[in-house]
Design a protein around this nucleic acid. Sequence first.
DNA 1: CTGAAAGCGCTAACAC
DNA 2: GTGTTAGCGCTTTCAG
Lengths: 349, 349
Amino acid sequence: MAKRKAVSIKDVARESNASLTTVSLVLNNRDGRISRATRERVLSAVERLGYRPSRLAQSLQSQRSGFLGILVPQLRHAFADIYFGELISAIQETAAENDYKIILDVANPRYLERNHHLELFRRHYIDGLLCLGVTNNDTYLDDFSDDHPVIVVNNRVAGIDLDFVQCDYAEAGRIAATHLCELGHKKIGYIHGATEVQTTADLRDGFEDVLNRLKLSLPTSRTEDGLYTEEGGAAAAIALLTRDPGITAIFSGNDKMAIGAISGLKQIGKRVPDDVSVIGCDDIHHAEFCDPPLTTIHTPIFEVGARACKLLLDLISSKAESVRETQAVSLSVRKSTAAPRKGRNGATQ
Amino acid sequence: MAKRKAVSIKDVARESNASLTTVSLVLNNRDGRISRATRERVLSAVERLGYRPSRLAQSLQSQRSGFLGILVPQLRHAFADIYFGELISAIQETAAENDYKIILDVANPRYLERNHHLELFRRHYIDGLLCLGVTNNDTYLDDFSDDHPVIVVNNRVAGIDLDFVQCDYAEAGRIAATHLCELGHKKIGYIHGATEVQTTADLRDGFEDVLNRLKLSLPTSRTEDGLYTEEGGAAAAIALLTRDPGITAIFSGNDKMAIGAISGLKQIGKRVPDDVSVIGCDDIHHAEFCDPPLTTIHTPIFEVGARACKLLLDLISSKAESVRETQAVSLSVRKSTAAPRKGRNGATQ
DNA sequence: CTGAAAGCGCTAACAC
DNA sequence: GTGTTAGCGCTTTCAG
């Protein structure tokens, strides 16, 4: 670990018999006025010394850190989640293309209590922030008022005026309902995720909207919380069919719960889709590989992440003033949905 | 976006009628010599102004960035991977506990070509680096020679002398082989991941070791590359059983491929574990929820990540000189392995 | 065409 | 007890 002392711009200046200014000018291509000879001399010294300007000093000077923050909620191993992972990948990629780097923070209670989310800006850690997995309970978001570049990714927060980029979850709900209804299902169950998430509300609204229009209802007895997890989805599906064995289809608020639901249904001897159809939402990579492959609503998560990052950069460079975008979703039909079997109790409302 | 101007230590000094030094002293608790009254005055000014020291300036001064880097290889959406996600979660958590923040970088070809991995240190972005998903082809790691705090996480690199923390994959291979042999399997297939990964070699060595000792062999005809993906695992399993229908068990180098293998086996009409047993390696969260629940080798990934981060911090603060650790693994029996059915061709070598 | 000097916000010797 | 000053490494006026 024999850390050789870092070489600074001073060393380059000395080595090339030029002044600090000249070196800086050359390195920043502000060298319209620098003679070719001097330029060469400086560049060769830079090369020889392996000099690279300190980003710390540059940032102090420019008052821009060159970092973007990603704030995720505290979950079981926050980053071991495909949904967040996909968003983070998209954000990282977009940031890197624009010479920004990404900082990762987890908003646990202690973190928020100590106002670490505010320190992110106050202490000049970052130039902009992307908030993932936000819920309507996250009142701390209010602290970002309107004087910091912050974008809520794939969500909105009711009552807080923040920029966002999201998928059209109301439409996702409508598509799911339409698909199941067109197959002929009448008694449809619904497994939702955290109700304090705004897009969860959107999804349900869209879903119920179609059901209502077709004179089918969504009684609370056909509704269960799946906690956005596989375990939760399994438990919810079992609860649903235990309470109302006539249910022939289930719409799950995300794919994880849908996969759990399929597993739960199997446990109680129900076949998918023969006895019960299951449709998810998200279209995670794994959806294609479950048994049966999951019919789901494709949400362009990666694109949303990339777009959110791009727009945040625009916000930072004042190329944009305000950002509110909603991206289209689509149906991805696989094998977990089918028409209900005739003559079964499920076919009669 | 009416960004009110940032308040600096100068403002606090003015507001509290004290000097910069005094303010700094108070804030850093080096205030043994400061009078109680002054102290109060400073603190109240800090409070009133909402002052927080700039990390940029502090870092420039202290020559420590307070950041740790995580370098991951370029994969399809690098962070949408449970394995990396788990490591990153562990690292982030440990870093946060020690007042460090995490920077995320993806080592794509362009990145490496431009020596961005070296800039990480040269330009003072980070104080230490954790490399994930490393292979023996990653010669750029050599650039970190021995003058930077770098730890390879859950791997080693053949021929490059770098610190590492890893699971005992040789033992994992031995445990898997022993489990299958004890169940009575004779013809065992093996699906491996990228062979340029050192731990893959370890795993195979351990696996073959046991097989050889029991006078069972692992001919290349019973070996397939599963590319560390589900799709690859499915294809590999199908290839394996097509070539040698006598195979009654498969060991997969990771859970993802094992899950793919199960899906592939189903496609060709094989039941798991009735016709073919499948054992994975990793024990990812999802392993419990596939159908059938996956028997696998539990590797303490989270612990490895946390430990690697802790040791990196020790390296940085010179509390440690060199780091080489190997963590124990264990068998997690679920439902995807069973004794081979009697009288089947698989039972005779 | 080039360089001296100020300043970004902070810490720490060193006075007083 | 408290303040002055230099300096961390860089960019950028402003002179020359």
